[in-house]
Design a protein around this nucleic acid. Structure first.
Lengths: 237, 237
DNA sequence: GGCCGTCTGTGCGTTAGGACACATATATGA
DNA sequence: TCATATATGTGTCCTAACGCACAGACGGCC
Protein backbone atom coordinates (compact mmCIF):
# COMPACT_ATOMS: atom_id res chain seq x y z
CA UNK A 1 0.00 0.00 0.00
CA UNK A 2 1.42 3.30 -1.02
CA UNK A 3 1.31 6.41 1.05
CA UNK A 4 -1.00 8.05 -1.44
CA UNK A 5 -3.49 5.26 -1.08
CA UNK A 6 -3.82 5.88 2.65
CA UNK A 7 -6.96 7.53 3.97
CA UNK A 8 -6.37 11.25 3.98
CA UNK A 9 -7.04 11.84 7.68
CA UNK A 10 -4.53 9.21 8.67
CA UNK A 11 -1.72 10.71 6.69
CA UNK A 12 -2.39 14.06 8.29
CA UNK A 13 -0.76 12.85 11.47
CA UNK A 14 2.96 12.93 10.83
CA UNK A 15 3.83 10.11 13.21
CA UNK A 16 1.42 7.77 11.49
CA UNK A 17 2.45 9.06 8.08
CA UNK A 18 6.04 8.12 8.85
CA UNK A 19 5.21 4.47 9.49
CA UNK A 20 6.36 1.90 6.94
CA UNK A 21 3.50 0.36 4.99
CA UNK A 22 3.69 -2.93 6.82
CA UNK A 23 3.32 -1.38 10.27
CA UNK A 24 0.70 0.99 8.96
CA UNK A 25 -1.46 -1.80 7.58
CA UNK A 26 -1.35 -3.68 10.84
CA UNK A 27 -2.47 -0.62 12.79
CA UNK A 28 -5.00 0.88 10.41
CA UNK A 29 -7.93 -1.25 11.61
CA UNK A 30 -7.27 0.01 15.14
CA UNK A 31 -7.34 3.70 14.25
CA UNK A 32 -10.65 5.35 14.88
CA UNK A 33 -11.30 8.90 13.68
CA UNK A 34 -13.00 11.35 16.02
CA UNK A 35 -13.50 15.04 16.46
CA UNK A 36 -12.56 17.28 19.36
CA UNK A 37 -14.41 20.45 20.30
CA UNK A 38 -12.73 23.50 21.79
CA UNK A 39 -12.14 23.25 25.51
CA UNK A 40 -12.81 19.52 25.71
CA UNK A 41 -10.73 17.79 28.39
CA UNK A 42 -9.00 14.69 27.05
CA UNK A 43 -7.53 13.61 30.34
CA UNK A 44 -7.34 15.01 33.83
CA UNK A 45 -4.35 15.15 36.12
CA UNK A 46 -3.75 11.61 37.31
CA UNK A 47 -6.62 10.35 35.21
CA UNK A 48 -6.56 6.98 33.51
CA UNK A 49 -6.46 6.85 29.71
CA UNK A 50 -8.17 4.22 27.60
CA UNK A 51 -6.80 5.55 24.32
CA UNK A 52 -3.89 7.43 22.85
CA UNK A 53 -4.82 10.21 20.46
CA UNK A 54 -3.07 11.18 17.25
CA UNK A 55 -4.26 14.72 16.36
CA UNK A 56 -4.71 15.44 12.67
CA UNK A 57 -6.01 18.99 12.52
CA UNK A 58 -6.68 19.57 16.22
CA UNK A 59 -4.23 21.00 18.76
CA UNK A 60 -4.08 19.72 22.31
CA UNK A 61 -2.61 21.72 25.15
CA UNK A 62 -0.90 20.12 28.14
CA UNK A 63 -1.68 22.22 31.21
CA UNK A 64 -0.77 22.03 34.84
CA UNK A 65 -3.49 23.31 37.15
CA UNK A 66 -2.33 24.61 40.52
CA UNK A 67 -4.20 23.94 43.73
CA UNK A 68 -5.37 27.58 43.73
CA UNK A 69 -6.73 27.25 40.19
CA UNK A 70 -3.91 29.07 38.41
CA UNK A 71 -2.66 27.26 35.35
CA UNK A 72 0.22 27.17 32.92
CA UNK A 73 0.91 25.27 29.74
CA UNK A 74 3.89 22.93 29.61
CA UNK A 75 3.54 21.93 25.98
CA UNK A 76 1.19 21.29 23.09
CA UNK A 77 0.61 18.47 20.62
CA UNK A 78 -0.75 18.66 17.10
CA UNK A 79 -0.41 16.71 13.88
CA UNK A 80 3.29 16.10 14.62
CA UNK A 81 2.59 14.12 17.76
CA UNK A 82 0.46 12.11 20.09
CA UNK A 83 -1.44 12.65 23.34
CA UNK A 84 -1.07 10.07 26.08
CA UNK A 85 2.64 9.35 26.23
CA UNK A 86 2.22 7.96 29.75
CA UNK A 87 0.70 4.85 28.20
CA UNK A 88 3.89 3.80 26.46
CA UNK A 89 6.31 5.40 28.93
CA UNK A 90 4.89 3.06 31.53
CA UNK A 91 3.54 5.54 34.06
CA UNK A 92 -0.07 5.13 32.99
CA UNK A 93 -1.02 8.66 34.13
CA UNK A 94 0.49 12.14 34.17
CA UNK A 95 0.01 14.90 36.74
CA UNK A 96 -1.44 17.35 34.20
CA UNK A 97 -4.51 18.04 32.11
CA UNK A 98 -4.86 17.77 28.34
CA UNK A 99 -7.31 20.27 26.83
CA UNK A 100 -8.37 20.91 23.24
CA UNK A 101 -6.85 24.22 22.26
CA UNK A 102 -7.99 24.10 18.65
CA UNK A 103 -11.00 22.06 17.61
CA UNK A 104 -10.65 19.44 14.90
CA UNK A 105 -10.02 15.84 14.09
CA UNK A 106 -7.84 13.16 15.59
CA UNK A 107 -7.40 9.40 15.50
CA UNK A 108 -7.49 7.27 18.58
CA UNK A 109 -6.06 3.86 19.29
CA UNK A 110 -6.83 1.57 22.22
CA UNK A 111 -4.16 1.69 24.88
CA UNK A 112 -3.60 -2.06 24.74
CA UNK A 113 -3.07 -2.03 20.97
CA UNK A 114 -0.54 0.76 21.26
CA UNK A 115 1.29 -0.91 24.11
CA UNK A 116 1.53 -4.20 22.24
CA UNK A 117 2.79 -2.45 19.15
CA UNK A 118 5.27 -0.46 21.23
CA UNK A 119 6.56 -3.68 22.78
CA UNK A 120 7.38 -5.05 19.33
CA UNK A 121 10.19 -2.54 19.22
CA UNK A 122 9.54 -1.49 15.64
CA UNK A 123 9.20 1.81 13.86
CA UNK A 124 6.30 3.04 15.96
CA UNK A 125 8.36 2.61 19.11
CA UNK A 126 11.20 4.50 17.52
CA UNK A 127 8.90 7.31 16.37
CA UNK A 128 7.10 7.62 19.69
CA UNK A 129 10.35 7.83 21.60
CA UNK A 130 11.81 10.43 19.27
CA UNK A 131 8.60 12.42 19.53
CA UNK A 132 8.79 12.22 23.30
CA UNK A 133 12.33 13.54 23.22
CA UNK A 134 11.18 16.49 21.09
CA UNK A 135 8.36 17.08 23.54
CA UNK A 136 10.89 17.17 26.36
CA UNK A 137 12.72 19.92 24.51
CA UNK A 138 9.48 21.81 24.08
CA UNK A 139 8.68 21.56 27.80
CA UNK A 140 12.24 22.52 28.73
CA UNK A 141 12.12 25.54 26.51
CA UNK A 142 8.81 26.55 28.06
CA UNK A 143 10.54 26.47 31.44
CA UNK A 144 13.44 28.58 30.22
CA UNK A 145 11.18 30.99 28.35
CA UNK A 146 8.93 31.43 31.39
CA UNK A 147 11.95 32.41 33.36
CA UNK A 148 13.82 34.68 31.01
CA UNK A 149 11.59 36.25 28.36
CA UNK A 150 8.94 38.92 28.10
CA UNK A 151 5.25 38.24 27.82
CA UNK A 152 5.27 39.56 24.26
CA UNK A 153 8.01 37.14 23.24
CA UNK A 154 6.22 34.26 24.90
CA UNK A 155 3.01 35.15 23.13
CA UNK A 156 4.88 35.11 19.82
CA UNK A 157 6.36 31.72 20.63
CA UNK A 158 2.93 30.38 21.49
CA UNK A 159 1.34 31.81 18.35
CA UNK A 160 4.08 30.41 16.13
CA UNK A 161 3.98 26.96 17.70
CA UNK A 162 0.20 26.96 17.28
CA UNK A 163 0.40 28.23 13.72
CA UNK A 164 2.78 25.40 12.80
CA UNK A 165 0.12 22.95 13.95
CA UNK A 166 -2.84 24.71 12.37
CA UNK A 167 -4.40 24.17 8.98
CA UNK A 168 -5.08 27.83 8.17
CA UNK A 169 -4.16 31.17 9.65
CA UNK A 170 -7.04 31.53 12.04
CA UNK A 171 -7.00 30.48 15.67
CA UNK A 172 -10.25 30.45 17.65
CA UNK A 173 -9.17 31.42 21.13
CA UNK A 174 -10.04 34.25 23.51
CA UNK A 175 -7.37 36.30 25.26
CA UNK A 176 -8.66 34.87 28.51
CA UNK A 177 -7.79 31.34 27.37
CA UNK A 178 -4.40 32.37 26.06
CA UNK A 179 -3.72 33.94 29.44
CA UNK A 180 -4.54 30.60 31.10
CA UNK A 181 -2.13 28.83 28.76
CA UNK A 182 0.69 31.26 29.31
CA UNK A 183 -0.02 31.53 33.02
CA UNK A 184 -0.40 35.31 32.91
CA UNK A 185 -3.19 37.87 33.36
CA UNK A 186 -5.75 38.40 30.65
CA UNK A 187 -4.93 42.12 30.59
CA UNK A 188 -1.32 41.34 29.91
CA UNK A 189 -2.32 39.35 26.85
CA UNK A 190 -4.53 42.25 25.71
CA UNK A 191 -1.59 44.62 25.84
CA UNK A 192 0.90 42.31 24.12
CA UNK A 193 -1.62 41.22 21.50
CA UNK A 194 -2.36 44.89 20.90
CA UNK A 195 1.29 45.53 20.19
CA UNK A 196 1.44 42.62 17.74
CA UNK A 197 -1.69 43.94 16.10
CA UNK A 198 -0.27 47.45 15.85
CA UNK A 199 2.76 46.13 14.02
CA UNK A 200 0.50 44.22 11.65
CA UNK A 201 1.57 40.75 12.71
CA UNK A 202 -1.90 39.57 13.76
CA UNK A 203 -5.48 40.70 13.80
CA UNK A 204 -7.64 39.97 16.79
CA UNK A 205 -11.43 40.09 16.84
CA UNK A 206 -13.44 38.62 19.65
CA UNK A 207 -11.87 35.25 20.02
CA UNK A 208 -10.50 34.95 16.52
CA UNK A 209 -6.83 35.53 15.96
CA UNK A 210 -5.58 35.70 12.42
CA UNK A 211 -1.88 35.40 11.69
CA UNK A 212 -1.24 38.13 9.12
CA UNK A 213 2.54 38.19 8.98
CA UNK A 214 4.59 35.29 10.33
CA UNK A 215 7.78 37.13 9.53
CA UNK A 216 6.96 39.84 12.02
CA UNK A 217 6.23 37.27 14.71
CA UNK A 218 9.49 35.52 13.96
CA UNK A 219 11.31 38.84 14.22
CA UNK A 220 9.85 39.44 17.66
CA UNK A 221 10.03 35.95 19.16
CA UNK A 222 12.90 34.77 21.34
CA UNK A 223 15.26 31.98 20.33
CA UNK A 224 13.09 29.45 22.20
CA UNK A 225 10.75 28.99 19.25
CA UNK A 226 13.56 28.15 16.86
CA UNK A 227 15.14 25.69 19.28
CA UNK A 228 11.89 23.77 19.61
CA UNK A 229 11.10 23.92 15.91
CA UNK A 230 14.56 22.77 14.88
CA UNK A 231 14.47 19.92 17.36
CA UNK A 232 11.12 18.68 16.06
CA UNK A 233 12.42 18.87 12.50
CA UNK A 234 15.62 17.09 13.42
CA UNK A 235 13.93 14.26 15.28
CA UNK A 236 10.85 13.77 13.14
CA UNK A 237 11.45 15.64 9.91
CA UNK B 1 23.29 -13.09 43.29
CA UNK B 2 21.57 -11.18 46.06
CA UNK B 3 21.28 -7.45 46.26
CA UNK B 4 23.56 -7.40 49.25
CA UNK B 5 26.28 -9.15 47.32
CA UNK B 6 26.39 -6.38 44.75
CA UNK B 7 29.22 -3.87 44.82
CA UNK B 8 28.14 -1.03 47.08
CA UNK B 9 28.54 1.74 44.54
CA UNK B 10 26.33 -0.03 42.04
CA UNK B 11 23.46 -0.42 44.41
CA UNK B 12 23.62 3.27 45.21
CA UNK B 13 22.02 4.06 41.88
CA UNK B 14 18.36 3.27 42.28
CA UNK B 15 17.76 2.40 38.64
CA UNK B 16 20.53 -0.18 38.68
CA UNK B 17 19.50 -1.37 42.11
CA UNK B 18 16.02 -2.11 40.80
CA UNK B 19 17.27 -4.48 38.10
CA UNK B 20 16.56 -8.18 38.50
CA UNK B 21 19.69 -10.21 39.24
CA UNK B 22 19.85 -11.71 35.77
CA UNK B 23 19.87 -8.34 34.00
CA UNK B 24 22.22 -6.95 36.57
CA UNK B 25 24.78 -9.68 36.08
CA UNK B 26 24.77 -9.17 32.34
CA UNK B 27 25.39 -5.45 32.70
CA UNK B 28 27.83 -5.41 35.62
CA UNK B 29 30.93 -5.97 33.47
CA UNK B 30 29.97 -2.93 31.44
CA UNK B 31 29.61 -0.57 34.40
CA UNK B 32 32.66 1.54 35.05
CA UNK B 33 32.89 3.67 38.20
CA UNK B 34 34.15 7.23 37.90
CA UNK B 35 34.16 10.46 39.82
CA UNK B 36 32.81 13.86 38.84
CA UNK B 37 34.18 17.16 40.10
CA UNK B 38 32.08 20.24 40.71
CA UNK B 39 31.35 22.22 37.57
CA UNK B 40 32.47 19.51 35.17
CA UNK B 41 30.52 19.53 31.91
CA UNK B 42 29.28 16.06 31.01
CA UNK B 43 27.81 17.03 27.69
CA UNK B 44 27.30 20.23 25.77
CA UNK B 45 24.22 21.37 23.91
CA UNK B 46 24.02 19.24 20.78
CA UNK B 47 27.11 17.33 21.81
CA UNK B 48 27.57 13.67 21.10
CA UNK B 49 27.65 11.23 24.02
CA UNK B 50 29.78 8.09 24.17
CA UNK B 51 28.37 6.96 27.52
CA UNK B 52 25.33 7.16 29.70
CA UNK B 53 25.98 8.00 33.34
CA UNK B 54 24.27 6.59 36.40
CA UNK B 55 25.04 8.96 39.30
CA UNK B 56 25.56 7.35 42.67
CA UNK B 57 26.39 10.20 45.00
CA UNK B 58 26.82 12.99 42.46
CA UNK B 59 24.10 15.34 41.21
CA UNK B 60 23.96 16.48 37.61
CA UNK B 61 22.12 19.60 36.52
CA UNK B 62 20.50 19.95 33.11
CA UNK B 63 20.86 23.56 31.99
CA UNK B 64 19.82 25.49 28.96
CA UNK B 65 22.25 28.24 28.01
CA UNK B 66 20.81 31.18 26.09
CA UNK B 67 22.60 32.84 23.22
CA UNK B 68 23.27 35.83 25.48
CA UNK B 69 24.82 33.61 28.15
CA UNK B 70 21.88 33.59 30.54
CA UNK B 71 21.01 30.13 31.81
CA UNK B 72 18.27 28.23 33.54
CA UNK B 73 17.98 24.71 34.88
CA UNK B 74 15.33 22.42 33.46
CA UNK B 75 15.96 19.47 35.73
CA UNK B 76 18.50 17.50 37.75
CA UNK B 77 19.55 13.89 38.01
CA UNK B 78 21.03 12.05 40.96
CA UNK B 79 21.09 8.52 42.31
CA UNK B 80 17.47 8.02 41.19
CA UNK B 81 18.28 8.48 37.54
CA UNK B 82 20.53 8.59 34.56
CA UNK B 83 22.20 11.23 32.40
CA UNK B 84 22.06 10.83 28.64
CA UNK B 85 18.45 9.89 27.93
CA UNK B 86 18.90 11.01 24.31
CA UNK B 87 20.88 7.81 23.71
CA UNK B 88 17.91 5.54 24.31
CA UNK B 89 15.21 7.99 23.24
CA UNK B 90 16.82 7.92 19.84
CA UNK B 91 17.70 11.56 19.36
CA UNK B 92 21.39 11.07 20.10
CA UNK B 93 21.83 14.64 21.39
CA UNK B 94 19.89 17.20 23.43
CA UNK B 95 19.89 20.99 23.09
CA UNK B 96 21.12 21.53 26.65
CA UNK B 97 24.17 21.20 28.84
CA UNK B 98 24.73 18.73 31.70
CA UNK B 99 26.88 20.08 34.52
CA UNK B 100 28.02 18.52 37.79
CA UNK B 101 26.13 20.32 40.53
CA UNK B 102 27.43 18.18 43.36
CA UNK B 103 30.72 16.34 43.07
CA UNK B 104 30.84 12.59 43.60
CA UNK B 105 30.70 9.18 42.03
CA UNK B 106 28.83 7.73 39.11
CA UNK B 107 28.88 4.70 36.87
CA UNK B 108 29.10 4.90 33.16
CA UNK B 109 28.09 2.49 30.43
CA UNK B 110 29.01 2.57 26.76
CA UNK B 111 26.23 3.95 24.60
CA UNK B 112 26.17 0.85 22.42
CA UNK B 113 25.81 -1.47 25.40
CA UNK B 114 22.93 0.55 26.76
CA UNK B 115 21.21 0.75 23.41
CA UNK B 116 21.47 -3.00 22.88
CA UNK B 117 20.14 -3.68 26.33
CA UNK B 118 17.33 -1.17 25.79
CA UNK B 119 16.39 -2.91 22.55
CA UNK B 120 15.93 -6.19 24.43
CA UNK B 121 12.82 -4.64 25.91
CA UNK B 122 13.50 -5.92 29.43
CA UNK B 123 13.49 -4.39 32.84
CA UNK B 124 16.11 -1.76 32.06
CA UNK B 125 13.98 -0.44 29.22
CA UNK B 126 10.98 -0.29 31.51
CA UNK B 127 12.95 1.50 34.23
CA UNK B 128 14.56 4.00 31.86
CA UNK B 129 11.20 4.92 30.33
CA UNK B 130 9.54 5.33 33.70
CA UNK B 131 12.45 7.45 34.85
CA UNK B 132 12.12 9.58 31.71
CA UNK B 133 8.46 10.12 32.44
CA UNK B 134 9.31 11.26 35.96
CA UNK B 135 11.93 13.60 34.51
CA UNK B 136 9.27 15.05 32.22
CA UNK B 137 7.20 15.84 35.29
CA UNK B 138 10.20 17.48 36.91
CA UNK B 139 10.84 19.65 33.85
CA UNK B 140 7.15 20.51 33.54
CA UNK B 141 6.97 21.54 37.14
CA UNK B 142 10.05 23.70 36.67
CA UNK B 143 8.21 25.48 33.87
CA UNK B 144 5.12 26.02 35.99
CA UNK B 145 7.13 27.06 39.04
CA UNK B 146 9.17 29.54 36.99
CA UNK B 147 5.95 31.12 35.90
CA UNK B 148 3.92 31.22 39.08
CA UNK B 149 6.05 31.13 42.21
CA UNK B 150 8.36 33.40 44.16
CA UNK B 151 12.10 33.15 44.12
CA UNK B 152 12.09 32.03 47.75
CA UNK B 153 9.72 29.16 46.97
CA UNK B 154 11.77 28.15 43.98
CA UNK B 155 14.93 28.19 46.04
CA UNK B 156 13.24 25.92 48.57
CA UNK B 157 12.16 23.56 45.82
CA UNK B 158 15.68 23.46 44.46
CA UNK B 159 17.22 22.86 47.88
CA UNK B 160 14.78 20.07 48.69
CA UNK B 161 15.25 18.34 45.33
CA UNK B 162 19.01 18.55 45.82
CA UNK B 163 18.82 17.36 49.42
CA UNK B 164 16.86 14.29 48.33
CA UNK B 165 19.74 13.40 46.04
CA UNK B 166 22.53 14.18 48.49
CA UNK B 167 24.27 11.90 50.92
CA UNK B 168 24.55 14.35 53.80
CA UNK B 169 23.13 17.76 54.63
CA UNK B 170 25.84 19.88 53.06
CA UNK B 171 25.77 21.23 49.54
CA UNK B 172 28.90 22.83 48.08
CA UNK B 173 27.54 25.57 45.87
CA UNK B 174 27.93 29.34 45.74
CA UNK B 175 24.97 31.67 45.48
CA UNK B 176 26.30 32.70 42.10
CA UNK B 177 25.93 29.14 40.82
CA UNK B 178 22.49 28.70 42.34
CA UNK B 179 21.48 31.92 40.58
CA UNK B 180 22.63 30.40 37.27
CA UNK B 181 20.58 27.29 37.95
CA UNK B 182 17.44 29.18 38.88
CA UNK B 183 17.96 31.72 36.13
CA UNK B 184 17.86 34.66 38.52
CA UNK B 185 20.31 37.32 39.80
CA UNK B 186 22.88 36.42 42.39
CA UNK B 187 21.61 39.19 44.67
CA UNK B 188 18.14 37.71 44.59
CA UNK B 189 19.52 34.41 45.85
CA UNK B 190 21.40 36.28 48.60
CA UNK B 191 18.17 37.85 49.82
CA UNK B 192 16.07 34.66 49.67
CA UNK B 193 18.83 32.52 51.18
CA UNK B 194 19.13 35.14 53.91
CA UNK B 195 15.46 34.75 54.73
CA UNK B 196 15.79 30.96 54.89
CA UNK B 197 18.82 31.39 57.13
CA UNK B 198 16.96 33.83 59.41
CA UNK B 199 14.19 31.30 59.91
CA UNK B 200 16.78 28.64 60.75
CA UNK B 201 16.12 26.42 57.76
CA UNK B 202 19.65 26.56 56.37
CA UNK B 203 23.08 27.94 57.16
CA UNK B 204 25.17 29.45 54.46
CA UNK B 205 28.91 30.07 54.62
CA UNK B 206 30.97 30.84 51.56
CA UNK B 207 29.80 28.20 49.16
CA UNK B 208 28.63 25.69 51.73
CA UNK B 209 24.95 25.36 52.39
CA UNK B 210 23.83 23.18 55.25
CA UNK B 211 20.24 22.04 55.48
CA UNK B 212 19.37 22.55 59.14
CA UNK B 213 15.63 22.03 59.13
CA UNK B 214 13.92 20.33 56.22
CA UNK B 215 10.55 20.87 57.85
CA UNK B 216 10.91 24.61 57.54
CA UNK B 217 11.84 24.31 53.88
CA UNK B 218 8.85 22.07 53.28
CA UNK B 219 6.62 24.61 55.00
CA UNK B 220 7.85 27.35 52.69
CA UNK B 221 8.04 25.49 49.39
CA UNK B 222 5.24 25.54 46.82
CA UNK B 223 3.32 22.44 45.81
CA UNK B 224 5.70 21.86 42.88
CA UNK B 225 8.19 20.02 45.05
CA UNK B 226 5.62 17.54 46.31
CA UNK B 227 4.26 16.89 42.82
CA UNK B 228 7.73 15.99 41.55
CA UNK B 229 8.67 13.95 44.60
CA UNK B 230 5.42 11.98 44.56
CA UNK B 231 5.77 11.28 40.87
CA UNK B 232 9.30 9.92 41.29
CA UNK B 233 8.13 7.75 44.18
CA UNK B 234 5.14 6.50 42.23
CA UNK B 235 7.11 5.65 39.09
CA UNK B 236 10.33 4.34 40.64
CA UNK B 237 9.57 3.76 44.32
C1' DG C 1 -34.43 47.78 18.22
C1' DG C 2 -32.96 46.88 22.83
C1' DC C 3 -31.05 43.94 26.34
C1' DC C 4 -27.42 41.10 28.14
C1' DG C 5 -23.43 38.38 28.29
C1' DT C 6 -18.93 38.01 26.63
C1' DC C 7 -14.74 39.92 25.07
C1' DT C 8 -11.39 43.54 24.77
C1' DG C 9 -9.22 48.02 26.02
C1' DT C 10 -7.24 51.12 29.57
C1' DG C 11 -5.85 53.33 33.72
C1' DC C 12 -3.66 53.29 38.31
C1' DG C 13 -1.43 51.81 42.36
C1' DT C 14 1.48 47.85 43.93
C1' DT C 15 5.20 44.60 43.89
C1' DA C 16 8.78 41.21 42.78
C1' DG C 17 12.71 41.08 40.75
C1' DG C 18 16.39 43.18 37.59
C1' DA C 19 20.51 46.35 36.78
C1' DC C 20 24.08 48.54 38.88
C1' DA C 21 27.04 50.13 42.50
C1' DC C 22 29.52 49.20 46.44
C1' DA C 23 30.67 47.55 51.05
C1' DT C 24 32.24 43.83 53.66
C1' DA C 25 33.91 39.27 54.76
C1' DT C 26 36.60 35.07 54.07
C1' DA C 27 40.17 32.10 51.90
C1' DT C 28 44.62 31.55 49.70
C1' DG C 29 49.07 32.25 48.62
C1' DA C 30 53.24 35.29 48.12
C1' DT D 1 51.14 39.79 57.15
C1' DC D 2 49.49 41.59 53.34
C1' DA D 3 47.48 41.34 48.72
C1' DT D 4 44.17 39.53 45.96
C1' DA D 5 40.46 36.93 44.35
C1' DT D 6 36.21 35.21 45.63
C1' DA D 7 31.77 35.26 48.12
C1' DT D 8 28.19 37.56 50.38
C1' DG D 9 25.36 41.59 52.08
C1' DT D 10 22.86 46.06 51.10
C1' DG D 11 20.99 50.03 48.91
C1' DT D 12 18.83 52.64 45.15
C1' DC D 13 16.46 53.08 41.13
C1' DC D 14 13.88 50.93 37.31
C1' DT D 15 10.68 47.95 34.87
C1' DA D 16 7.53 44.19 33.75
C1' DA D 17 3.82 42.29 35.23
C1' DC D 18 0.03 41.91 38.75
C1' DG D 19 -4.49 43.18 41.00
C1' DC D 20 -8.35 45.68 40.62
C1' DA D 21 -11.78 48.65 38.62
C1' DC D 22 -14.35 49.91 35.02
C1' DA D 23 -15.35 51.47 30.25
C1' DG D 24 -16.40 50.31 25.74
C1' DA D 25 -17.62 47.05 21.94
C1' DC D 26 -19.46 43.44 19.69
C1' DG D 27 -22.77 39.41 19.07
C1' DG D 28 -26.77 36.91 19.83
C1' DC D 29 -31.41 36.69 21.18
C1' DC D 30 -35.91 38.45 22.80
Amino acid sequence: MSVLARPYHTVENRLLAALPGEDYERLLPHLEPLSFSLGEVIYESGGHLDYVYFPTISIISLLYIMENGASAEMGMAGKEGVVGIALFMGGDTMPNRAVVQSAGGALRMKAKVLQDEFARGGQLQRLLLRYTQALITQISQTAVCNRLHSLEQQLCRWLLLSHDRLKGDELVMTQELIADMLGVRREGVTVSAGQLQDMGAISYVRGRIRILDRGKLEATVCECYRVVKDEFDRLLG
